[in-house]
Structure formats: C-alpha cells, structure tokens
Amino acid sequence: MCANKSMNFTGEDNGKPKAGPKRFLLLHFSILLFSVTGIFSKLAANSINGFGLFHINTVIFAGLMLINCAVYALFWQQNLKRFDVNVAYAHRSVYNIWSLLWAVLIFSEKITIGNIIGTIFIIAGILVMQSE
C-alpha cells in the first residue's frame, strides 16, 4: 500500500504524468494568488475593527477575498491532480515568504527575529520533505 503511494523527487504521484516546469510554475502562481487572499482577509478584518461588519469596505474586501479564493481554488484543484497532497501542500508554505513581505510592505507590521528564525525552520522543514 505504502509503495503504491510513494513519490519520486519531482513530487508527483506514481502512475501520473510527470510534473514539468510549467506545472511547478502553475503551482507557485496559485500560491501567490493565495497570499493575495490573505491580504483581503486582513483588510476585511481591519475594516471590521474600524467601521463595522456591514460597512461597504468590509463587504468589498470580503467579496474580493472570496473571488480571489475561488480563482485560486480552480488552479489548486488542477495542481492536486498532478502532485501528491503532501508535496503540493508543502510547496504552499512558500506562502510564508509572501506573507512576511506583505506584512511589512502593506500592513507596516514589525517582524521579530523569532519570526525570521521560525520561517527559516518552516522552509527547512519543507526542503527536508522535498528531498525524499
């Protein structure tokens, strides 16, 4: 059972077409889209704090969040057809880099040393998973 579900280094399921560079590009484009969903989530949350749940800004940001997420989901489902769920999800952790970048650039948040060390550990974990 386990052998049937094992992967090669490119991370695709056995018996499925090999995932080439285009597939990996599509995977990471999906991840970038997903990071934009997070931005809209935070903007909606800030709007709730500032103006209330039913303010037009909250509705717009929540709507954009849903639309963006729907587009992302279409791409993501195609990714899951090519990649093992563990591997696809591990790649999605590249989101962390985007997240820290947006936190500083858009939301002017302070990033601590612990945040950076933690993110390095997380990425190291992903690389270890990818090395099998």
Binding site: G38, K42, Y95, N96, S99, W102, A103, I106, F107, N115
Partner: peptide, 8 residues
C-alpha cells in the same frame, strides 16, 4: 497579518 505564517 504576519501570523498568517502560522495559520498556513
């Protein structure tokens, strides 16, 4: 927002 790293 940076805690999105943990959430994700």
């Amino acid at each position: 927002y940076r805690f999105g790293v943990v959430i994700n």
